[in-house]
Amino acid sequence: MTLHPQVAAALASMPAPPPGPLDAVAMRAAEEAHVPPLAERPSLHAVEDRDADGVPVRIYTPVEADTCGLLVYFHGGAFFLGSLETHDHVARNLAKETGLTVVSVGYRRAPEAAFPAGLQDCYAVVRWAAEHGDELGWDGGTLAIAGDSSGGTFVAAVAAMAHDDGFGAITHQVLFYPSLDLDFDEDRYPSLRENAVGYGMETAGLRPFNAFYLDSGADPADPLVSPIKRADLSGLPPALVVTAEHDPLRDEGELYGRRLQEAGVPATVSRYDGAGHGFVQHFSWIPEFARVHRETADFLRGR
């Protein structure tokens, strides 16, 4: 299937990136400038900014209820972009569709914070959420983790860390077009060549976009950096792995899902035809892609 025409039109209207090395500060400012006004975001019962043992979080309560399940969300952005604001609408949509209280994590980013600072923040908030379940209204049931792109990297890594630590509270993991192999050898996966050019995120841009993270000490051979390199995936939480047809990262996500299945982990791999990388953040308003929130909700409800 070809790239969805509305996505193709949006990409065609985007200006070419400026030449030279990436400027993290300028790129963050540009991203923040495109955040929609509050009135245009999905409304919920309550949204609150808090501090989770030193990590900024934003808590989304979809409806008034005594208790409900929890979902801890890690935003994407190649480990140096993204924020509570840029992904606010994603967290709101997840809360609204799943009915869970969503805790979005404002983790530390590269290059200012070296590896593994951001990952440690994400894991710490998951444990904080479990420890503060009473004040969050957690019903003691669902405690899911979810993330898009590099946030999906953190989901896989946090699930592994929790397993190795004997922390068994995580019930589900949801990975939206995750980055799971930071080796970036173009011959490693066919999708790196099939989707190299013309679909938004391009294969040639993967290395420079992730350079801030890798240069901060993240070793691509480390399974906490490249979760697909973890030898034993058994015992991890059930997973939903969402991929995009026209994404250079498509094949590593789908391979990870298959490896989970082979390790005895209940795992669903769902490819969105016509989609490119980042569609949950940028194009989930398109009807063909909006179902990703319903699919996530169905997975978390065990359907």
Rank of each mutant, 00 (worst) to 15 (best):
A16Q: 15
V25C: 00
A30E: 03
A30M: 11
H45Y: 15
D49Q: 12
D49T: 09
V57N: 09
V57T: 06
I59L: 05
E64D: 12
D66K: 12
G77C: 00
A78D: 04
H87Q: 10
D88R: 09
D88Y: 10
E97N: 08
E97V: 07
R109T: 15
Q120R: 15
V125T: 11
E135K: 11
D139W: 02
G140T: 08
A144L: 04
I145R: 02
T153V: 03
H163I: 14
A169M: 12
L175A: 03
D185H: 06
P190N: 04
P190C: 07
S191V: 02
S191K: 03
L192F: 15
N195M: 10
G198K: 01
Y199L: 03
M201R: 09
T203E: 13
G205K: 06
G205Y: 04
L206W: 02
Y213G: 00
S216K: 10
P220W: 07
A221R: 13
V225I: 01
P227K: 01
A231M: 07
L233G: 15
S234G: 15
P237K: 04
P238Y: 14
A244G: 10
E254T: 11
G257F: 03
P266F: 04
G274V: 08
G278V: 02
W285K: 14
I286L: 05
F289C: 00
R291C: 08
R294N: 08
F299S: 01
F299Y: 07
